[in-house]
């Protein structure tokens, strides 16, 4: 397949067994199309960071193959690395160097001559609002600034594929929203983005495609919209004007009373909210506010992970007699 039509990333049978015998990846197959904003979700220890680590060559793989824009990493690892920018989960900047030096050096590692490297670094730092801090020791930057610095560093060589491992972990909501807007702009400029995150709200807001990984396997790989369509029911929490003492009986709806006098209503897919409002009117219940019980993707995610664990538990163990 030619480079111009090949996907941004293709993983085939990716496996990783650590020295302590832990099998972190059990044959990952994944394809990320160019220009996509792709989310890789999964619970802790599912294999997200291991996958990212292998793609960025920070972790040695035990099996499988990786292609970046059609370049097989076994054949041309350096060529594949040129196309990737990576923002790790942990802060990994040299605390004793200033931002301009850090970003310009990164450009240098990609073979960009020093003068041009400094110009590129300046451009990235200006865009990130770090130009005024260019000569400040990085250790004195705030947490949010350090994260922006890591993004600037990942962008300086103009990667076609940007990989971010939980870029908003541990930052407050305002910085998280600012990072989202930044990532959207980067993606709109044509850069493919792969994001791992714990925040399902983040994945729903940003990612057009999502893969869910659990126990070293991909349990779902589809576009976000189709994934959300798989929701069979959605649960809403309704706050009545007067706290209720028991769950209201609403025809065609399952309801549950909550401790604070509010109640939950399960609405099946395809049932309009008007029907609920009509039932509430008939029951003479005045509602002051209404909200989703959980993020929609979260409900789906938990269901898929539970399903995956159920399958793993019922699967025959290697030492069992299966005849």
């Amino acid at each position: 397949m030619s480079i111009s039509t090949s996907p941004a990333l293709r993983l085939r049978g990716l496996q990783k067994t650590y020295a302590n015998g832990v099998q972190a990846l059990k044959g990952i197959d994944l394809e990320v199309n160019r220009g996509e904003f792709f989310g890789l979700l999964g619970p802790n220890g599912a294999g997200k960071s291991t996958t990212i680590g292998i793609v960025t060559s920070l972790i040695n793989r035990s099996g499988g193959s990786i292609e970046v824009f059609g370049i097989n990493t076994d054949e041309d690892l350096e060529g594949a690395k040129r196309l990737i920018g990576v923002v790790p989960q942990e802060i990994n900047i040299n605390q004793f160097e200033p931002p301009l030096q850090i970003v310009a050096q990164q450009a240098g590692y990609y073979g960009i001559p020093w003068r041009e490297a400094r110009e590129r670094a300046g451009e990235c730092l200006r865009w990130m609002g770090l130009w005024d801090k260019r000569d400040t020791m990085s250790r004195s930057l705030s947490g949010g600034m350090k994260r922006r610095l890591m993004i600037a560093r990942a962008l300086v060589h103009g990667p076609r594929l940007l990989i971010l491992d939980e870029p908003t972990a541990g930052v407050d909501i305002e910085i998280r929203r600012a990072t989202w807007s930044l990532l959207k702009e980067i993606n709109e400029a044509g850069t493919t983005i792969i994001l791992t995150t714990h925040y399902l709200e983040e994945a729903e807001a940003l990612c057009k495609k999502i893969a869910i990984i659990d126990d070293g396997r991909i349990v779902k790989d589809t576009d976000t919209r189709s994934l959300l369509r798989q929701l069979v029911t959605e649960t809403f929490v309704l706050d009545p004007m007067q706290p209720l003492e028991r769950a209201p009986a609403l025809p065609d709806f399952v309801t549950r009373l909550r401790e604070d006098g509010s109640f939950e209503v399960e609405i099946e897919k395809g049932v309009g909210l008007n029907k609920l409002f009509h039932a509430l009117d008939n029951a003479h219940i005045q509602v002051s506010s209404m909200r989703n019980k959980t993020n929609r993707l979260e409900e789906l995610f938990l269901g898929l992970v539970e399903e995956s664990k159920g399958r793993a538990a019922s699967a025959p163990q290697p030492n069992e007699v299966t005849s």
């Binding site: 040129r82 196309l83 590129r120 103009g158 400029a189 044509g190």
Partner: peptide, 11 residues
Amino acid sequence: RNPMQTLRSVS
């Protein structure tokens, strides 16, 4: 300016 619009990819 968004550097991804202006920076030439090293590749």
